[in-house]
Design a protein around this nucleic acid. Structure first.
Lengths: 244, 244
DNA sequence: TAAAAATGGTATGAACTCAGACCATTGACC
DNA sequence: GGTCAATGGTCTGAGTTCATACCATTTTTA
């Protein structure tokens, strides 16, 4: 039994406790959900009381977050029955804004996200393919895929792609896995908006999506994982070249 | 563009923002680090000011957490130069306490952790084997492995095993991956203490550890991943039978 | 032996968060 | 048209957390 902490584990294992301001964390989550297209343009967010319960936060705090979202132009709010908060943010066009200078820390975080994604999303595909899916779940996956194919503008395509990956994560039935996929997609989305990326090869990407859907619906975990790995590798290769 | 939120993603994507009390989160993290053996019996925690900085929390809040740890008998504190807070918690013997009744929610969370682990730890092994490791890192891995083999009492073996897996996570160089491994190991540790598990097959487990170390040091990612997958599957099969 | 340094211990006022109650507005339903 | 339910808007007092000092104790070092 040693009398000193092991190796350099301590510094690496202890993580910052959540950010001071709860309302900032709420803004973060809601803005991410909106940008990723979980709540698309024109959709209504849940009532404040419900959202507060979901985020485990007081209504007062949630309302601060909502005010910030309103301020930033992501949503608008109407009172009264049938009212609520509606998404007004149009999906941004990728690379619409010139890439701001990227801090080294952010660059590190981005590259880390790509590595983590290479683990998490293929794992999610594996789990989803191994799960027994009911008809509704199968339709959900096919609908998400159809929306990606149907999207014409780059901005819509980007959101539909996020939703597709989140849907795969949701099909795993594993909350932790979905949380990891969400976190990874949020960072990926941030990267794709900040980097003036060349037009991605959409048809190539769609062939991979199609193969993935097929493997999941057919219940071939190993196949689904390989396809997702290739998909992640292709995106990562493109992005790494532009970031690193 | 629809006018309603997509599918059932919203409920699944939005996560509770944080536990209300920052000091509870600190207690949680520190207690986990101590129980997992990151800070073994007799080791000294970092000074309060440093810990507060690491956890991004005020010293006042950190001290509340420390008081709780003292209260619970995990640590003792001495003042003055050369003083500090020392770990006094002896590692618990697995299944020393009769299994308390396990709530359905906890059971769900545990099963979820096993699924997530099946993704994360093999992924970490893959990354670690693919990374170029310097001599110190290689020695760290071998030392962690040696400590597992050297451990005689079940309680010490349990901690050494945790540290071994955390070490693999740390070797990936990916903060997100290490965070995921830490979270998974914390839940796994909780399970192993709460369930009156049969004596695990230590020699079997050690053969897998040895194969894993070999694959990582030799730089064979695919091999490392397969070995870790089998290792996770074996543990999971054992635990699932007792939990589910 | 005295000073300095490193550590935990204490105090204070401001900012944040919470829970719960109540108010105001609007649309749905009878 | 009237009633009511669902929704956002407001208020308040208590509990938490923070940042920043300053104090007390012990060991190291000059």
């Amino acid at each position: 039994m040693t009398a000193s902490p092991q190796d350099h584990l301590p510094e690496a294992v202890l993580r910052p406790v959540r950010s001071h301001h709860a309302f900032e964390a709420c803004v973060e989550q809601l803005a991410t959900a909106i940008r990723l297209g979980v709540y698309p343009l024109g959709s209504t967010l849940p009532p404040e009381r419900d959202l507060a319960a979901i985020l485990r936060v007081s209504r007062a705090t949630l309302r601060e977050a909502m005010a910030a979202l309103r301020e930033a132009g992501l949503v608008e709010t109407r009172r009264g029955r049938g009212g609520g908060t509606v998404v007004t943010l149009k999906p941004r066009t990728p690379s619409a804004r010139a890439a701001a200078r990227i801090s080294p820390e952010r660059r590190e975080a981005w590259l880390d996200a790509l590595e983590f994604r290479r683990i998490v999303e293929p794992g999610a595909a594996y789990l989803a393919a191994g799960a027994t899916l009911d008809d509704e779940q199968r339709q959900r996956l096919e609908r998400a895929h159809a929306e990606v194919r149907a999207a014409r503008k780059p901005a819509e395509h980007r959101q539909a792609d996020s939703r597709f990956h989140l849907t795969v994560g949701a099909l795993t039935g594993s909350p932790r896995t979905l949380e990891a996929v969400t976190s990874v997609q949020a960072t990926l989305h941030e990267m794709l908006l900040a980097i003036p990326v060349l037009e991605t090869n959409i048809s190539h990407s769609d062939r991979q999506h199609a193969a993935l859907v097929k493997a999941i619906l057919a219940g071939h975990p190993a196949r689904a994982r390989v396809v997702m790995e290739e998909h992640c590798d292709d995106t990562a290769a493109l992005l790494r070249g532009l970031v690193g």
